[in-house]
Write a protein that binds this DNA or RNA. Structure first.
Lengths: 189, 189
DNA sequence: TCGCGACGATAACAAATGTTTATAAATGCA
DNA sequence: TGCATTTATAAACATTTGTTATCGTCGCGA
């Protein structure tokens, strides 16, 4: 639990005993390459923290097409957070693109943390704010960056992604077809 | 301060005295139609709560083109929240599209609330979560709804918007040109 | 080791969207 | 009230992006 401890301590002050109590609810789990970590249509009751590996978040539309809408890397929290909060059935699929080790944070543990950790609510606020900022950047970029710029800037968001994720999933994340991304790479603007 | 009181009490339990102490930092301000409420390039140190009116959030790109990226209605909080949190110079412009009355919440008041309100951190968490969910829906829709569907669904997000906002700003919000939106309205899919 | 499927590049064509210009109605202000 | 400005539509054309098909490489499992 060293990595998640460090991540939490970057956000709040928390004593060892508090942390130990909080982690009572959690456990480590590993997933094989390509394995599905979380499926849509059931209420998500877990948040994951990635120790090692890489998780793709995708949504499947009515026609069965997959849209990759996020990649989560080491030392990040990931879930269908929106539907976790709303306690509504998930729309997102979480898939390990590599052998992946996560810390599982069940809802009961998180609710216990809000109620009992001295700075539990603050931790929740900072995490929500962090992902709000990430999304805000993303929405903003869609308005005032060209598709080629968004491609060029992707390594700022997901370092080393080109060595870890197939290009057609990057194209999907960028909201374009793989054919078109291949074309864009050849030209400059 | 009735409206904002009600909005806060939908999220947390708070006594009258606490509220009064919190509101010490705040004041009401009105803006005329078309007036600029907040400009880019300075660090945003205020969050606004709309009592009456309608605020457009826009970003101006290098070529000077304006992109409308949000409309905020009555009983909502609005700011360049991302840059408020990060204490970085704003990128967004806030403009009143109607005669608009807001409650101004200065940073010192918000920080006082986090430190002193019993449920201040929780309030911050719930607000951040609320806007996270809004953004998540928006990003999701970009992946699996057609442009026409996004147009048809806009009144779910901004009720009565067609009577309050010119169509070319709606087109901008949808990421298309006004000419193209006009075209889309004629066809069905 | 072989063979199949995943992956990425490419070309040709189709569809969607942007650009420019024109026009007419609606709006707001002097 | 009258006039200038804003707004929405329309058409013609340009550009971007999607679709389909083909091909060559690579990696992985039987």
């Amino acid at each position: 639990m060293e990595q998640i401890t460090q991540a939490i301590r970057q956000m709040i002050a928390i004593e060892a005993q508090e942390l130990a109590d909080f982690f009572r609810f959690s456990f480590v789990k590993t997933f094989k390459k390509q394995e599905i970590i979380s499926r849509p249509n059931t209420i998500p009751n877990e948040i994951f923290f990635i120790n090692k590996g890489l998780i793709r978040v995708l949504i499947t539309d009515q026609e069965g097409n997959e849209h990759s809408l996020h990649f989560a890397l080491e030392n990040q929290f990931i879930a269908d957070y929106s539907h976790f909060i709303q306690k509504k059935p998930a729309l997102y699929t979480l898939q390990a693109l590599e052998e992946t080790e996560v810390v599982v944070l069940p809802r009961v543990g998180i609710e216990w943390g809000y109620a009992n950790l001295k700075e539990g609510q603050k931790l929740g606020r900072l995490i929500a704010e962090f992902y709000f900022i990430y999304q805000d950047d993303r929405i903003k970029n869609n308005y005032y960056r060209s598709p080629k710029e968004r491609y060029d800037l992707i390594t700022d968001i997901f370092p080393n992604i080109h060595n870890r994720v197939p290009q057609h999933m990057i194209a999907s994340y960028l909201g374009m077809t793989p054919v078109h991304l291949s074309r864009l790479k050849k030209i400059n603007r």
